[in-house]
Design a protein around this nucleic acid. Structure first.
Lengths: 334, 334
DNA sequence: TTGTACGCGTTATCAC
DNA sequence: GTGATAACGCGTACAA
């Protein structure tokens, strides 16, 4: 009997709707005998509570939205995976939304057309400015991820880009590299992140007594590896020299390694390469890739905790938190 | 005014609730003047329709659940990405559920505890038997993905495993390989797939006048690459010989290539390797990996179309469809 | 401890 | 073309 209702159960068990409701939700004040009787009726009818009706009256959906560029990008797949696990801990369901790096989709994330679809939003924007975010956001609890400078009123979690980039660069300095280049995407919208990483890179160079090496900027398409490969190939052809390369992300690093290989350079002998994100391919590329490993579990855990606090009514000022990272050294630098 | 309701709008506009509802949903029978007036009120109040209430009365959630082992596995990330796009075409939202290769989680996918959470389910089981699926499934429309033998009553989409495995094997034969091995996971629960691929492999060998090469089976953990690497390393140490290897998936292939490299064998000169899935790493590994590329867009498109038909009341017998694949030849075999 | 009545915001069925 | 009003299924004061 699909579609059995609370009332049906109550009728069959010969009790009131309220009692059945209590049993279903494990409320304390129910006698054992009553519970027994009601449960039998529930089984007989195959009753299952109607989520929608429950939501309408409680005002809670039990759902959280997670929005980021694209699931296909390995880094985000890992974030999504982890975020799902965090959501489960709080008995929340996760709804994933992909912005495909398009600003209108990012706007849509905030300017939700429907009310009450989710209880809160975790969002990693890449195009939207801080101003626009605070302007567009509604009343739904919101936590931001990633490297933007968030509005003051909004919670935010990220890793310390400047420090991490410095760590990566310092590692190359310690390996005795002298002409250390920087490879990034030239996407005007996401330049904040690039700037932060560039800053860390430069400070580590300075600290290590190195001069700034060549900077290679490539257009930012959906998948960075191809663009990076083309960009580095071109640079090599032009005679740009470097024996170390700090890359914006693993995708770029993989593309760079490919370009180097084609140009007859070997990694790490001729050029040491460092990536960022520690996606799957970093471990299994040949040579395997030294990279910055963000603490994704911590990132997701903090973000979800903060969101849940907001959902539960916490109304303080926006919190800005940093989570850990480490340098994972592999074949590409030693 | 967050939380403005249809009634509030009606009051402000001086019309009935029904009229406002009509305007909101673009119903035909409403005069231009009325529409104008109502829309002004909507803007003024910042009214947004309440999804939950709408669902309660329509009985539709506008959501579809997609369940598979894990998002972190690149193949599934790509499927999820594509499936999201398909869902969007039908104005549906996609809810992702990970089974983490555990049978109790697979059971939970079918035996949905809550009614009316989703309108339909697309499910790629790996542990559940066909019998258990037909026994467990409720009344929610269901489409199965992947290599199980589905219950007769359930729709199902997959690629032709036997043919694809034969194609991969034939390619190695054509490359002049003589001792072609087969590498797979020894997971008793998912052995159906392995059997199918083994069958295709064997038939292609026979057709090409080759004897069956060594079969290497490795335990199936969350990530296959490590297990495959260990398994192949061990086989090589034991002196198992092969100059070609058909791998269960790209993860296994990547692990195998790593083991070969460590053993001083070069790919493809000493051993040609073929993978399966064409995940990101296949293109960017070194050497890049020849692999079976399933037509994921077609897979998702067919699955979603069939599900939508079911949701819309189609009640025919279970359909069993095959989608395309192709062999993508890269450096690992030439 | 259990039962009754009402409200959640929307759509659908009728009249008008 | 538009307006009352009854569902939809559940949670919860409040009464018993």
């Amino acid at each position: 009997m699909p579609g059995a209702t609370l009332r049906d159960v109550a009728k069959l068990a010969g009790v009131s709707v309220k009692t059945v409701s209590n049993v279903v939700r494990d409320q304390p004040h129910v006698s054992a005998a009553m519970k027994e009787r009601v449960e039998r009726a529930i089984d007989e009818l195959g009753y299952v509570p109607n989520t929608t009706a429950r939501r309408l009256v409680t005002g809670r959906t039990g759902m959280v939205k997670m929005a980021f560029p694209e699931l296909k990008a390995p880094y985000f797949a890992e974030v999504a995976d982890q975020m799902h696990k965090e959501a489960k801990k709080h008995d929340l369901r996760l709804l994933i939304e992909q912005t495909e790096n398009r600003i209108e989709n990012e706007r849509a994330v905030l300017a939700d057309r429907e009310q009450g679809l989710v209880d809160g939003i975790i969002f990693e924007p890449v195009k939207l400015s801080s101003k626009e975010i605070s302007h567009l956001r509604g009343h739904v609890p919101l936590v931001l991820l990633g490297e933007i400078l968030p509005p003051l009123s909004v919670d935010h979690v990220m890793i310390d880009n400047v420090a991490a980039a410095a760590t990566a660069t310092r590692h190359l300095v310690e390996q005795g590299r002298h002409h250390i280049g920087f490879l990034a995407y030239k996407d005007p919208d996401s330049s904040d992140t690039v700037k932060q990483r560039l800053k860390g890179y430069e400070s580590a160079l300075k600290e290590g007594g190195r001069q700034a090496g060549p900077s290679i900027y490539v257009p930012a398409p959906a998948f960075g590896a191809d663009a990076a490969e083309a960009g580095v190939s071109e640079a090599l052809k032009k005679g740009v020299e470097f024996d170390g390369l700090v890359c914006y992300d693993d995708l770029a690093a993989v593309g760079a390694m490919r370009a180097l290989r084609r140009a007859g350079k070997s990694v790490p002998e001729d050029v040491a390469v460092v990536g960022w994100d520690d996606i799957f391919v970093a471990k299994y590329s040949n040579p395997s890739l030294t990279t910055i490993t963000p603490d994704i579990p911590a990132l997701c855990s903090r973000a979800m905790d903060m969101l849940v606090e907001r959902i539960n009514g916490y109304d303080g000022v926006g919190r800005h938190e940093l989570v850990d990272y480490r340098l994972t050294v592999r074949e590409s630098t030693e």
